[in-house]
Simulated scan of single mutants.
Amino acid sequence: MRRLTLAVLLVLAGCSSGGGDDTVGFTAVDLTATPEALATHGDMLVIGTRPSDHPELVTRTKDGTLSNSRLTPATPYGKEAHWYGLTSDGTTITGVGGERGGAHGNVRWSAWTGDTRAINEKPQAFSTFGGYGAGELIGPVRTAKGPLIIGTWQSAKAGLDIAAWTYAADTWTRQPSAGTVLESSQELLRFPLAVTPDGDGALVTGWQIAKGTVSAAVWRFDGTTWTTATLPDGDAALAARCWDGTCHVVGRSKGRLAWWSGPDWKKLTTPDIPVGDDDKLAAPAPVNGVPTLFVDHGGVKLVSDKDERPADGPSGAVVAVEKVGDQVFVIAGGRLWRLGQAA
């Protein structure tokens, strides 16, 4: 199946799909290695990159200056890790890396903590993220009470629970999911796919299956308690971003693009764009206050809930989107791009 990847951008003020040249320009950001993940760190962009065999961390200032942070791995797999996610509270950067290995080819996870000067792998006991009950790690997210890592872990009842790890004294500790809306059961299996900051807490997107019925779902953490909601007419919620009190969730409904706006989770009308079972979406981002998506749909396009416009520059699969100040950055086709032409 042709791979479609979505990320997000915005229709600039005064532009429409009718008449004129609606092409939106981008400028390539030249890096020395393949970008894999993005995060905002104050007024700087943090870029997780990987040359052929090891991870690196690059920062970009508002004026375009690029610098490498000193990266110190502590385990053999940390030395080879790909970036699965980065997050920042403006002071501390938290990263999750992984590389497959061992007899079964499972992902061997690495957890990273630091700042723009240096980021270090913090070695964990094997049973922290691995072992008999291990699932997958989705990625890190910052909250007001500190960072979380979201993933899955063997359920006491059925399948896998959604799991959350908290961080203190260089140690990640998995919190119990039993008795919460993160727990799976024989009647309801839960599958997280992505996580994003949401105010003081976090929003996890994914899907669930109950009595043979598949539905898109979100799990929301307010800093103390987890709650959940089923999204109307949806098969999977693939990515989200929250700003100004609203969470914008994109996903799949009957093989087509679906878009919801929360906290009331109203489904929006969008252009008719296919999204397959194996396709991934990057989170929407605000540009001039308007959420819009990037789509590899016969070429990379910018898609809002009203129209779709071609992008000049980016091509190929879209991996990540990040907004820093008034600038929007996109990883597409293994390169980093900035919205807007060079001055």
Rank of each mutant, 00 (worst) to 15 (best):
A229C: 11
G64K: 06
W83S: 11
H41C: 06
W219N: 06
P35W: 01
V195N: 05
G262Y: 01
C242E: 01
K280I: 03
K301D: 11
A285E: 07
P271M: 05
T269A: 02
L66H: 11
V319E: 14
D200W: 15
W109V: 03
K62S: 14
T246E: 04
G234D: 12
S155I: 07
Q124R: 04
R252M: 05
L71A: 04
D326C: 08
Y132K: 12
V204H: 10
F221W: 10
L57A: 11
G48R: 12
F126H: 13
T49M: 04
S155H: 10
T92N: 14
D279C: 09
W260A: 02
G179E: 08
Y132F: 14
L31D: 09
T72F: 13
L231V: 00
S67P: 02
A332I: 03
L238I: 11
K266F: 01
L193C: 12
V275G: 14
V318G: 09
V328E: 09
H297N: 14
V58D: 15
T59W: 13
L293K: 01
K301G: 03
R241L: 08
A7S: 09
T224E: 14
V303C: 07
V330Y: 14
H297L: 08
R335Y: 03
V324T: 11
G146C: 14
V249K: 00
L6S: 01
R174H: 00
G262C: 09
R338F: 00
G105C: 15
T143P: 13
P176T: 10
V218F: 00
R70M: 08
L12I: 04
L188C: 12
A125N: 10
P140S: 03
A158S: 11
T246P: 02
V328L: 09
I209L: 04
R60M: 13
T92G: 07
A258K: 00
M44T: 15
W219K: 05
L4K: 05
D198W: 13
M44C: 15
V58G: 12
V303H: 01
V319K: 07
A311E: 06
D326N: 15
D198S: 13
A169I: 10
P192Q: 02
V218D: 00
D200E: 15
A282Q: 07
A7L: 09
G102L: 12
G14Q: 05
T270D: 11
M44L: 13
W337P: 00
A144N: 09
A144F: 02
V141D: 06
T230W: 01
P35F: 06
T128Y: 12
V96M: 06
G114Y: 04
S69L: 08
V330G: 10
Y84Q: 08
